[in-house]
Amino acid sequence: MTPSDFAKSSATLGFAYNALDRLANRRDDDAFQAEAAASPAARTLAVVGEAVVVRHGAEGRSELWFGFDEAATIGYLGQRVFLGVDARGPAFAVQVEAEGEDPLAGRDGLSLFNLRQVAADGSVAATELGALAEGKSMLSWHAGHRFCGRCGGRTASTVSGWKRICPACGAQHFPRTDPVVIMLAVDGDRCLLGRQPRFPAGMYSCLAGFLEPGETIEDAVRREIGEEAGIACGAVTYLGCQPWPFPSSLMIGCLVEAASTEIAVDQDELEDARWFSRDEVRAMLDGRHPDGLTCPMPMAIAHHIVLAWAG
């Protein structure tokens, strides 16, 4: 399997397509930013807590974008981040500080969805999900960096939401992305899949883990497979990646050749791990496995790694 094989299967990969021009060189242009925010075409994602406001439209379609005035009817508009522009105009994300257990009570046609619901639901165009990942990741970063990690002073947002500074000590804080390796170990016509206790019943997936400081992608792939399943591995092939805004990761998809086959499951990480034949994996993907076993849904990179390998 090659990266091109993976690319052929990944059209439904959640959060991976972002049509916005981020215009990073205009983030510190105050005049441009003021004009963009005041534009009649300006639109924003409205995030309440950890959920995003979704407007339900006709024919089963849903919309993520609101005008600032409309978003302000839900609650106080807090942290704002400039996401970029496209043919429709400037795009932003804003944290809405809404009161009450149900801030959308009485508002017909509006719902609060977590990001997995949005990606899995299918009513929001896949072309909008990359901007959603960008906006939600940035707002989560702001929520966790209100105070300086150096001196403890309160930080302030600047550069259109893409930097925080500490007035007390002068430290500058920038958003971060946490890299995660997710990989399929292969032994001839078999692949290794595992499951965690939190997975839906019967679902098996690729193994995954965070890339550590000072570690290559290849070493992280081999280490994680060895730690979680006791399998020694050799050559690693990069396939593709997926933004994963929970809160702000990048899933790095790989294929790796197994150099041993005896499984030793780390029960702290996995509930089970086993080898699956190619035909068995195809049955899992098609929903016809005799034991009811399944693979992750198409929004997840694990689905496309397995699908590309299974052919």
Rank of each mutant, 00 (worst) to 15 (best):
P103H: 13
V265L: 12
Q172W: 09
G226W: 05
G153F: 06
L104C: 03
N18S: 12
A126I: 11
E271G: 11
L207S: 02
D121I: 10
A36M: 14
Q267V: 10
L13F: 06
T12W: 06
E63K: 09
A201I: 09
D69V: 13
G214Y: 13
R154E: 15
A46G: 07
R195S: 13
N18G: 09
G226H: 04
R278K: 15
Q79G: 10
R116G: 09
E97N: 11
P200V: 08
S277T: 15
A168P: 00
D5A: 13
A38S: 15
W244P: 00
G188R: 07
L64Y: 12
Y76H: 11
A7C: 06
M297R: 12
G89P: 01
E280Q: 12
E227C: 05
L293K: 04
C166E: 01
G89K: 03
V94A: 12
L112H: 04
G240R: 03
A133N: 11
N114S: 08
E269L: 08
A126P: 04
R195P: 05
R223F: 13
R43I: 10
L13G: 03
A87I: 01
S277N: 08
P40N: 08
M1C: 03
L13C: 07
S10F: 09
L211P: 00
T44L: 10
M203C: 05
D69S: 14
A46H: 04
Y17T: 14
F246S: 13
R116E: 13
G292M: 04
L115A: 04
D291N: 11
L250S: 11
K136C: 12
A120N: 14
G202P: 04
A11Y: 10
L250R: 14
L129M: 12
S248L: 05
V81R: 02
F147C: 06
E99V: 12
W244K: 02
H304A: 07
D268N: 15
A143T: 04
G75S: 05
W275E: 07
R190V: 02
Y238L: 06
W141V: 02
Q267P: 07
A72L: 01
R26N: 06
D268T: 15
E215R: 01
M251A: 04
V81K: 04
D268M: 12
A283C: 07
F113Y: 14
A302I: 00
S249I: 00
C295Q: 05
G209H: 05
T2R: 13
I263Q: 00
V53T: 12
G144I: 03
A71N: 01
I74A: 02
P90M: 13
F68L: 10
W275C: 07
R107D: 01
R223K: 09
A46D: 08
D266C: 08
Y17Q: 13
V81H: 01
R274W: 03
V96P: 01
F246H: 15
F174Y: 15
F68S: 04
A36C: 08
L129W: 09
W244R: 03
Q267R: 15
Q196C: 06
V48W: 00
Q196D: 08
I165D: 11
L13E: 08
V181S: 08
P40W: 07
F82W: 12
S4A: 15
S4M: 14
L193C: 06
V52E: 01
M284A: 10
M138L: 15
G144H: 11
S205C: 09
P290T: 12
T12V: 03
C169Q: 08
F199V: 01
T73E: 14
I74R: 02
V47R: 00
T155I: 07
D291F: 10
A283F: 01
E99S: 09
L13T: 08
C233T: 15
